[in-house]
Design a protein around this nucleic acid. Sequence first.
RNA 1: GCCCCCGUAGCUCAGUGGAGAGAGCAGCGGACUUCUAAUCCGACGGCCAGGGGUUCGAAUCCCUUCGGGGGCGCCA
Length: 550
Amino acid sequence: MIREVVRQLIDDAVQRAQEDHALPPVAVPEVTVERPASEAHGDYASSLALKMARAARLSPMAIAGAIATHMAPPPSIAAVDVAAPGFINIRLSPQWLAQQVDVVLEAGPAFASTDVGRGRRVQVEYVSANPTGPLHVGTARGAALGDSLARVLQQAGYEVEREYYVNDAGSRMDAFNASLYARYAEQFGVDIPIPEDGYPGEYLRDVAAAIAATEGRRLLDIPEGEALLELGRRGVEIILAGVRDDLERLNVRFDSWFHEQWLYDHGLVDRALAFLRERGYVVEREGAIWFTSSSLGEDKDNVLVRSNGLPTYFASDVAYHYDKLVRRSYDRAIDVWGADHQGHVPRMRAVVGALEADPSRLVILLYQLVNLVRQGRPIAMGKRTGSYITLREVLDEVGPDAIRFFLLGRSPDAMMDFDLDLAKAQSDVNPVYYVQYAYARIASIMRRAEGTAFASGDVSLLTHGAELALIRKMLALPEVVADAAFALAPHTLPYYAQELATAFHAFYKDCRVISDDLDLTRARLKLVAACQTMLATTLGLIGVRAPEHM
RNA sequence: GCCCCCGUAGCUCAGUGGAGAGAGCAGCGGACUUCUAAUCCGACGGCCAGGGGUUCGAAUCCCUUCGGGGGCGCCA
């Protein structure tokens, strides 16, 4: 990555300047390089001299000058300038830029890769919606965020596992089972009320009907306890199949579906509780069993086992994270949760402490909730209230690409309105089409150029400003990937995608690719092919299609 | 009451200590005998919610006020 080359160059120059006594032997802050806002300031800039000024007791300009004169710039760098009040500005060589087209073509999608992950094992857990009903757009935000984060981390050299945690145990399931039982009975004209805290949504009618279709009324004739369990099991399967289909349509896939019930069946909950107990983090009080999180700096303790003997969701989550961090020992576990789970965060942090794991190994990424809006008015949502617009309906209405691009394109901290009318408008308000159109244009050029072999093209012919601007933008992709992986912030990708598309559209306007000049045609076809790879890679990270036609 | 997130152009939002604060959309003015005009170019548009502080330097960090959202269960 060229940014790293520049950074290293400055780092070396500072050391050399210190050896030459041009700079005093003070501690050097970490060298950072950024892309200046203004093109007049070159391709990269460093404010190192400004940061060093106080300790070195020299003016920033003097320091920057000393660094610049001790630099040994490689051919990739055309100019090193010092600018007030003390910036070091670095400009890339146009010839070198043009040559990068061959480098991109040679590397393919791997050009976008970096190795900041160094093969470390990271698990990303996301969606993990209760299997009590179909997904809605809110969970789709978690899906877009988690899936793209996983893709980015992979591109950045991590070994990534994507996991969906299925909450198929606990009191929510009891409510689900009873609700389904009522709907099943309804199929046969038997009136059983849906529990107060149950799931009155229409969708359970369909689930019940599907079970009734294969089982008839058999489940009404066996003991209720057995029927509840069997119905629940079948119901969860049906719901999960739907969830899987919806996610598949969204281009979201998982490596593993981890069932909460598995933790109970294999004694993991008991084992995790024993682990806490041995270390003195468990007390019994008021008939319940508590995790003494307050001894780990949290404001309160938390119940692990209720006074009625049933473990809480928290207990299995302790076991689940014991499994992630101790048994499966991921270097890092990233939980992607909706902001409505924020109350769960402090106690999970306390759990990591109790597990004697480095706190940085568990990262909890919260995303703010999504309001579904139609014609400017919010639509109330809730699985338990029954009023509900499913992700499937939105997928039918809007299409997966616009959904993903939109849901990923905002910082997880920003709450958002998902406006159905806006989202389905295939117009300028929808940047996903702008980016995809750039790809379709490329595909069109490549089709037209099918008979033209361009492997021998001479990229040094690429000297036009629009060509160089496009190359510059392409070279930024590995930086975007590295930064997104570092900050766990894949929402930068849609922005980058738009910038890359803009650079291409501008090039397309200014530079005719296929022309009478065969040499130039070949060179430009190389550039277009390289851009195609980078654009496809970017769209792939976002999780949307790269269409051949539009 | 306590805790978390947010407040930046008319609208939707980038910008996690650096150079007159950016993009898209809307509105305004231009560009198609051309590989897809779902495109391009230009101008307009800002007390970065208010107030204090830290710093050579603050939209960014700290304190505080106001406004919006979320959370404070032996639910998940």
